[in-house]
Design a protein around this nucleic acid. Sequence first.
DNA 1: CTCTTTCCGTAACAAGTGTTACCGTAACGC
DNA 2: GCGTTACGGTAACACTTGTTACGGAAAGAG
Lengths: 195, 195
Amino acid sequence: MARRRDLHGQQERLSAATWAVLAEQGLPGLTLRAVAERAGCTTGMVLHAFADKRALLVHAREVLHDRTGVRADAAASTAGTPLDALRAVLLQAASTSAEKREEARVWIGFLAAALADPALAELHQRYNRSFVDRIGRLVAAVRPDWGRAACATAATTLVALVEGLNALAAVDPDTYGEPAQRSAIEAALARLNAG
Amino acid sequence: MARRRDLHGQQERLSAATWAVLAEQGLPGLTLRAVAERAGCTTGMVLHAFADKRALLVHAREVLHDRTGVRADAAASTAGTPLDALRAVLLQAASTSAEKREEARVWIGFLAAALADPALAELHQRYNRSFVDRIGRLVAAVRPDWGRAACATAATTLVALVEGLNALAAVDPDTYGEPAQRSAIEAALARLNAG
DNA sequence: CTCTTTCCGTAACAAGTGTTACCGTAACGC
DNA sequence: GCGTTACGGTAACACTTGTTACGGAAAGAG
């Protein structure tokens, strides 16, 4: 035996580098050499931690989902009423800050990559459905009198709204700034409370 | 003088080929050779019609915007009440059919490309703002009692909803099928009518 | 028909891509 | 301490990319 490495730590660092490159250079600039340079290593090291480029992308996508998941949990747990919890989770998923907007760019990059890679598309479907389910449960907590179908419809609507806000804010942060996103979400929630 | 060509016709055909490749192969598969093969010519011909790849992308993006614009005009003109016009334009912009879903994939491809290309980003901003303005005017027609700010907020919300529905339907057509999109839009319109 | 001019396909180019094989090197067991 | 072994950097691979230069061919003018 000789020196052992922290494989998981390396993979996580490389995934972080992937996000950074994706946010700064976009999907066309996402090359192994760019990721390696960003992580402070060489392409050889990258392909020792991952079998190929697709494996790197898949891992980066998975870790991104995990991170957003724990952030959503944290947002929901600090809220008082069910409506507050729903609002907190939605606002946390929106891109109301420069950092969040950068994350939205990463999101779009993965989305575009998923259109050409079935493995990423499958991940995107599964992760998105789990988010819809999460929102659906929060909606059901806000409106216990609603049926399952009504909650599901409201959930897909809310998720689509947040997804659209992120996509638009990523390319036009002036039109879709923090107040615009907040008021859009607030309006959708108001309808949920009144309907 | 010798044989004259139809430059504009060629450019339009190449833009159509660009859409097709973008929808089928995604952004990574969008190469000059793929576009040329799709259009039934060679890369030399492509670069005789356009200065470089970016010019091809910009032209394809512009023509796409024009096409969606005339389609929106047609949808609005065939409607009776202002609310019907708004509903028709929104539904036409959504991806409620396989063909529309393919167009949504093209849309996402251009969006991801815009994150790495300032020229495309500028186009995306301008075209999206013109769409927001269009929706804003329709909202104002539905609710003449609302102020300019309220109409603008409602417009950005509706546009974000449609954009999000398209993004989600492109990668998960089962969850975000035609009925889901329709009910989501209908719910948002109901809020507009009641609020 | 011939000449001229425009057009477009061919083929090459340099640069950059993902990927692989190899070898130096650093660290652990003894 | 040394020897062994896993690790990771170097450099090459084959391939594809966008782009360019050149030559042949098609079509109008005379």
